[in-house]
């Protein structure tokens, strides 16, 4: 982490921690807002979301329906956890899990050549492609960093 205007020592360490803390909180709130936005989009049309889930061709209609029903509220809850910091350690773990799932499912769709819409953060019909995969990889990496940083700060008793 870069030092700004300090030669090192204790002051440098404090600035380092402050920048890291700032980034942690910005990312935490950013992810929270993104998840809440995504949940609202999907809660607006559960039926269309079930079609998007089915298009990934991983689950049958039954499980797709269950995912379409349960996943958006889960996103909403995790988003609220990230913003309010209530049960933050668990929220960060769930965020990491969710971004892992997004990444895996996007990668498998791309490998199989499925011409489908991502449905990752909205129902707009953004197609699966390398850009989407790169986006999900970035989110995965950032959520992993958040999780590892948060683990040290917000350990459960």
């Amino acid at each position: 982490m870069a030092f700004i205007g300090f030669s090192g020592g204790e002051k440098g360490l404090n600035i380092n921690l402050t920048i890291r803390t700032l980034i942690f909180h910005l990312l935490r709130i950013g992810f929270g807002i993104l998840l809440i936005y995504s949940a609202i989009q999907k809660l607006g049309d559960p039926f269309s979301f079930s079609g998007i889930v089915k298009n990934y061709d991983v689950f049958g209609w039954g499980v797709s329906r269950l995912v379409a029903i349960a996943f958006p509220p889960l996103e909403l809850l995790v988003g609220m956890i990230l913003i309010t910091t209530f049960w933050l350690d668990t929220g960060l773990m769930l965020l990491y899990g969710m971004t892992s799932v997004f990444l895996l499912i996007t990668a498998q769709a791309l490998l199989r050549g499925l011409d489908i819409s991502c449905g990752c953060f909205n129902l707009e019909g953004d197609p699966i492609g390398l850009v989407k995969l790169g986006e999900n990889l970035t989110f995965f990496a950032l959520s992993w960093w958040l999780f590892m940083t948060g683990k040290r700060r917000y350990r459960s008793e």
């Binding site: 349960a70 889960l74 809850l77 995790v78």
Partner: peptide, 20 residues
Amino acid sequence: ILFAGLILGCIINQFHPNGV
């Protein structure tokens, strides 16, 4: 959290005009 999400989702889906 997972259970709460599922319950909330079922309730929303039941009353949503475009539910599954």
